[in-house]
Simulated scan of single mutants.
Amino acid sequence: MTDLLIKICGISTEETMQATLDLGVDMVGLVFFPKSPRHVSLTQACKLADMARGKAKVVALTVNMDLDSLSRINELVAPDIFQFHGNETPEACAAAKVMYNKQVMKAVAISDRSDLEEALYYSIVADRLLFDAKPPKGSDLPGGNGVTFDWDLLKDLDLAKPFMLSGGLDASNVAQAITRSGATAVDVSSGVEREKGVKDIEKIRAFVAAARSVSPVAGE
């Protein structure tokens, strides 16, 4: 049995970062996507990453980003993990992994069982998969939409790589989500905000407590 991993994504202020680190979470996500209300500049990201270094894994979330911009993030922010949340191909994920010598996590949007087939291709090259709900119609954000999917789809999923559960999680449903999906890692962003892009420290604290109240049903 494996301890549950918790990732808080979309951190954009030093106050939120410090509070999150004090809770002992495993991963902190920095969003590099200008359309997102959680987007951070390279200057902000460098400060936040330095705060987290050695305390939690720093995850750089990007969406269909060009190699020059990825290289700049890698050089200046030095994340532990690149999270690709767009339409990046397995080949692009593999290339980034080799080029930057960093772990790669690939987000896969889920609405029904057929979407899991896509995960098989990415599981060959990615170090971890992140299952998120498909964005609602009209949304130009691939994640952080506060939408869930059928967690039972992931039960007994046989993948070569570990996965992280995301999409519409909050303190009220994360325990049920873990139990139903069998996830040993969870990710939250909008579910711990008081308004779009603004994290609520009390909601983060409640989410972490609720997630840790459940024992993972399976090891990675």
Rank of each mutant, 00 (worst) to 15 (best):
K199I: 12
R194W: 07
V188I: 13
E193M: 11
D200H: 12
V174R: 09
D200P: 05
V186Q: 04
F207S: 04
V192R: 06
D200K: 07
S172A: 15
R205E: 01
A177W: 05
A206W: 05
N173M: 07
E193T: 13
V198M: 00
A209C: 03
V186R: 08
A171S: 13
G191D: 02
G197L: 09
A175M: 01
V192W: 13
G182I: 14
T184R: 15
F207K: 08
R194H: 08
V198A: 00
A206R: 15
K196S: 11
E193W: 11
T184M: 09
N173C: 08
T184F: 06
R194C: 04
G182P: 14
S189M: 07
V208I: 10
A175Y: 03
A209W: 05
V186K: 06
S181F: 15
G191S: 01
S172N: 15
D200A: 05
I201Y: 03
R194L: 04
K199G: 04
T184Q: 14
D200E: 07
K203R: 15
I178L: 04
A175P: 13
T179K: 04
S190G: 09
D170H: 12
T184C: 12
F207I: 03
A177K: 14
T179Y: 00
V208K: 04
S181H: 13
V174M: 07
E193K: 10
E202G: 03
A206L: 07
Q176K: 09
A185E: 09
A175L: 00
V198S: 01
I204T: 12
G191P: 04
I178S: 08
A211G: 13
V192Q: 04
T179H: 02
E202L: 07
G197F: 12
A177I: 08
D187S: 03
V174H: 09
R180D: 13
D200T: 12
A210C: 10
A177G: 06
V192N: 03
D187N: 03
N173E: 09
S190N: 05
S190Q: 11
R205F: 01
T179C: 00
V188E: 03
A175H: 06
V174W: 08
E202W: 11
R180E: 12
V208G: 01
G182V: 12
I204S: 08
A185T: 12
A211T: 14
E195L: 03
S172Y: 11
V174L: 07
A183S: 15
I201G: 01
E202S: 14
A210N: 09
T184H: 14
A209R: 15
A210F: 10
R180H: 13
I201Q: 13
A183V: 14
G197I: 08
T184A: 15
R180F: 05
K199D: 00
D170F: 09
V188G: 00
A211M: 11
N173P: 06
A175V: 00
F207D: 03
S172E: 15
I201S: 11
I201V: 15
A185K: 05
E193Y: 11
Q176F: 03
T179M: 00
T179R: 01
K196V: 13
A206S: 10
K196R: 08
A206M: 09
R205L: 00
A211V: 09
F207W: 13
E195C: 12
Q176P: 01
E195I: 12
A183Y: 08
I201L: 09
I178F: 11
A185D: 14
E202A: 13
V198H: 02
D187C: 03
Q176L: 07
E193D: 01
D187A: 05
I204Y: 11
A209L: 10
